[in-house]
Amino acid sequence: MDKPTNHKAWFLVLPVLVLVAFSAVIPLMTVVNYSVQDTFGNNRFFWAGLEWFEEMLRSERMWNALGRQLIFSATILAIEVPLGIFVALNMPKRGVWASVCLVLMSLPLLIPFNVVGTIWQIFGRVDIGLLGYTLDRLGINYNYTQNAVDAWITVIVMDVWHWTSLVALLCYAGLQSIPDAYYQAAKIDQASRWKVFRYIELPKMAGVLMIAVLLRFMDSFMIYTEPFVVTGGGPGNATTFLSINLVKMALGQFDLGPAAAFSIMYFLVILLISWVFYTVMTNLDRKGG
C-alpha cells in the first residue's frame, strides 16, 4: 500500500518560523543593510558600499581581537576537555555520592554570567578578594587590573571554574551508558586502565564529547559578559575579545557601519565552524549506527 504523503505538517512549524524571523532573520537583514551604509544618527543613512568591510579586513584591532579570541578558545578547550574527562572518570558511578557530586558539579552552571564575573572580580582583588589578598601575602605579584598575564590567567581560570562541569557532566552521561559487560570483558582480557579508556570509554564518549567541544567552543568564541565584568577588556586591550570589541565599536563609538560589517564576518566564521562541527557529529552518529 502506498504511504500517503502530504506537506501539511509544515504548517505546524510556522509559529517557530515567525518567531525566528522576528528574533533573528529580520535583525540580521538589518545588520546587512547597515554594513553597506554610514549614519550620523536620526535614522538617516548614506551609501558606503564595501568600504566598511575593507576597513575591517585591514583593521589591526580586529585581527588582534580575533587572535586573542582564538588563543582564548584553544586554551580553555585544552584545559576543560581533558579536565572534564578526568573528573567524569573519577566521579562515583552510583550511590549517594554520585548524586552529591552531580549537584555540586551543576552549581557553577546555574550561576548567571554576570554574577560569575562579579564573583571573580572581587575574588581576585588584592585589597578585599580572598585570592588576590592571599597571593599578595604570599609575595606573588598579582594584579589583574594592571598586568595582562594576570588578567588572562584570571579570565581563563574563571572560565575553567564555570564550565568544566558541563564537559564533566556530559562525559559522565556518556560513561554511564556503557554496559558493565564491556568492563568485565576487558578484565578477562587483562586490559590495562589506559586500554580500557582508549578502546571502551573514549569511543563511547566520542558523541557527547563532540557536543561538549562544540558547545564550549561556541560559547567561548562568543564570550562577553564574564571578561567584561572582570577586566572590561583591559588592561589596555589585553582581554578585548571579539564580542567586547564589537560592543565597544557599535555602542561605545556608535560606528554602526563598521560594527555591522564586523558582525557579518564574525557570524560567517561562527556559521562555518558550526557547520563543520555539525557535519562531523552527524557523520560520527552514522558511523556509530
Binding site: 537583514m29 538589518t30 546587512v32 543593510n33 553597506v36 535614522n43 543613512f45
Partner: peptide, 12 residues
Amino acid sequence: WMAWTWPTAAFF
C-alpha cells in the same frame, strides 16, 4: 528603520 537599499534588497 531597517535602512533598506536596492542592492541589499536584490541580494536578499
